Simulated assay, not measured.
Amino acid sequence: MKRFRFNQQEIVFAVFALLFLVFSIFLRGFLTPENMLTLLQNVSVLGILGLAMAIVVIGRGIDISLIAALAVPPGLVLQMVQNGHSLPASLLTAVLLTIAFGLVNGWLIAYAEVPSLFATLATGLLLAGLGQAALFQLDVVQWSPGMDGFERLGQGTILGIPTSIIMFAIACIVVAFLLRQTRWGAYIYAIGDNPFAARVTGIPSRPIIVLQYVIAALIGCFAGLVLAASVNSMPTRIFNSTLIYDVILVVVLGGIGLSGGRGGVLNVVIGTLLIGTMLNGMTIMDISYAGQNLIKGVVLLLAVITDSFLNPRNEETAQQGDI
């Protein structure tokens, strides 16, 4: 019987393949070059955000502020260039803002010991409010001539492959290397698996937690730059959307346990394929926004319940790092 057991990755990939096949056969307009390009662009941004969330969840946390990191620093780049600043200076300013944002998140969680859910919820609202009140002149920051050429980050192709997908692939390689080939990655898994044991063995738990949130913020900013380059603007009110729930869906459905210490890049890729295809199909079927939220809510609830059975929390898990 063991030969026929399937893990969560294999089940989710099978569901994705079946869903893609059904949509291709029965959903008019799904398997067209234009829609496949749209699907790939959406999947790339969602997948990059999923990588950021995965790093935090593996370390037994959660980052609700990712969408603020996606919207505000890249929006600041577009706004500064529009106001006459050079692109390199604008990018440097956005990166510094992102690092500062990640440091604040990490300090609140690691040193002030504020639960990650509440800390990142508050900081995300703060950053989004700062952008709307002080940084941006309009809710949608438009492209400007100073950004010419940068749109290739989201709209170009290399050997026929959309650059947005290549950016996702590069992000996957970098995150996989960080998690599997570096000491920092081993520390993140150790902290996620058992924070008390990690601390006893001499792992610098608090600095590593700060590092997690800085890296997550930087990846979120990178996803925002890809998104802005794809649509030649930055809709800053995307912070008010349900995108963060799609990111959590990607992580949980992909098989990264919310109890920490489990999962990797492959889980994110598989979860991204399924959720991206599902969202694209619902859009083509013209399912209302409320209907899509209902479906996503049911799927997320089922995913969380399944995760609770596959990755049950033990006594140590219940004491530390609850999200």
Rank of each mutant, 00 (worst) to 15 (best):
R180A: 12
C172P: 01
F30W: 01
L46A: 10
N35C: 04
F136T: 08
F222I: 03
L227N: 09
I244W: 11
F13K: 05
S144M: 04
L227G: 03
I295T: 09
A229F: 05
C172F: 03
T98P: 04
Q41N: 11
N240G: 10
G84S: 14
Q137F: 07
F150S: 07
I215D: 11
V104N: 00
G47N: 02
L178A: 07
V56P: 10
L274W: 03
Y187D: 11
M80I: 01
V175I: 15
R262L: 02
V226E: 07
I248F: 14
S308Y: 06
Q292V: 15
V251H: 01
I270S: 11
L78P: 12
V214K: 05
C221F: 09
Q142L: 13
A52W: 04
F4K: 07
A171K: 07
L97M: 15
L27C: 10
N311H: 14
G220I: 07
G75I: 02
L274V: 09
I191H: 01
I287E: 01
A223Y: 03
N267C: 13
V214P: 07
A229M: 04
Q82A: 13
D148V: 11
E34R: 15
L18T: 11
L31P: 00
G291T: 12
V174Y: 00
A128D: 07
I173D: 01
L21N: 01
G281L: 06
L310F: 03
T272V: 06
Q132L: 14
V81Q: 03
I166H: 02
P312Q: 01
V114T: 13
P74Y: 09
I99N: 12
T120E: 12
G281I: 03
A122Y: 10
P235Y: 07
G271A: 08
S90C: 08
S205Y: 11
Q9Y: 05
L27S: 11
D322T: 10
G102N: 12
L243F: 15
V174Q: 00
V72M: 05
D322F: 08
M285W: 13
L21D: 00
Y187I: 01
T317L: 05
T306I: 06
F177H: 05
G271K: 00
R28T: 13
V95M: 14
D63I: 08
A17N: 00
S230R: 12
Q319N: 14
I64F: 15
N240Y: 14
P88I: 10
T242I: 09
L87I: 09
L117P: 02
V114G: 10
V200A: 10
A122E: 12
V247E: 00
L78A: 13
T236H: 02
N240F: 11
I25Q: 02
A100F: 15
R28P: 05
V265R: 04
